[in-house]
């Protein structure tokens, strides 16, 4: 186990963690948000050092933190492509063209479902219901949802992603941390 002081959390990250811990009567409550924070601080995934740092900062065994991290699909215990394209193929999307979208994306990216492009730019996976069925087929990339994706416009989506800000595991994790931590102006009245 590494000491927290040897970790990679930035000063801002440490302050955010302190704020998060204060929300819970027991530091255990902070494990999930701390993993989001760590996923941001470690560039979009959770290497063993990140797990160890969360464990050290919350005073828990690393095995416990690892056990939690591996339960949830959005914590990346393995590194992924910079753009993780998740195509919903659940009931509605699956009936409205999601599998054609996957076929097309496999073609464009030159990979199969579950793989990452050689340049590390894109990972393609199938998602369970993203609960935006009105816009089927729905694709999630990082913090963004894209609705109305079909085999015809899938290439545009990929082109758009190549040039866009955000939509990475890191920006997703950051957006979640920003949602968890109260706004600066509200801090004065938060108790």
């Amino acid at each position: 186990m590494v000491a927290a002081s040897a970790g990679r959390f930035s000063e801002a990250g440490q302050a955010q963690l302190a704020e998060i811990v204060s929300h819970y009567p027991d530091p255990g409550g902070a494990i999930l948000p701390a993993l989001w924070l760590a996923q941001r601080e470690y560039g979009g995934w959770l290497p063993a050092d990140a797990i160890a740092e969360v464990a050290a900062r919350l005073g828990r065994p690393a095995s416990e933190i690892q056990g939690v991290a591996t339960f949830y699909t959005m914590y990346n215990t393995q590194q992924r492509g910079r753009r993780h394209i998740e195509v919903c193929t659940c009931l509605t999307c699956g009936c409205l063209g999601a599998y054609e979208v996957i076929d097309r994306l496999e073609q464009i990216l030159g990979i199969h479902l579950g793989q990452t492009t050689a340049d590390g730019e894109f990972t393609l996976t199938e998602a369970e219901c993203l609960n935006y069925c009105e816009a089927a087929t729905v694709v999630q990339v990082g913090e963004r949802y894209f609705g109305g994706v079909n085999a015809e416009n899938a290439a545009d989506l990929v082109a758009r992603l190549r040039g866009s800000e955000g939509c990475t595991p890191e920006s997703l994790s950051n957006a979640i941390v920003e949602a968890i931590v109260p706004g600066r102006n509200a801090g004065a009245t938060h108790g």
Binding site: H23, L32, P33, L35, W36, F71, Y72, M74, E128, I180
Partner: peptide
Amino acid sequence: FCFDLHIHTGAGSY
């Protein structure tokens, strides 16, 4: 009457 409200996000689990 005091009430503090926080957000806790999940991480992918139905």
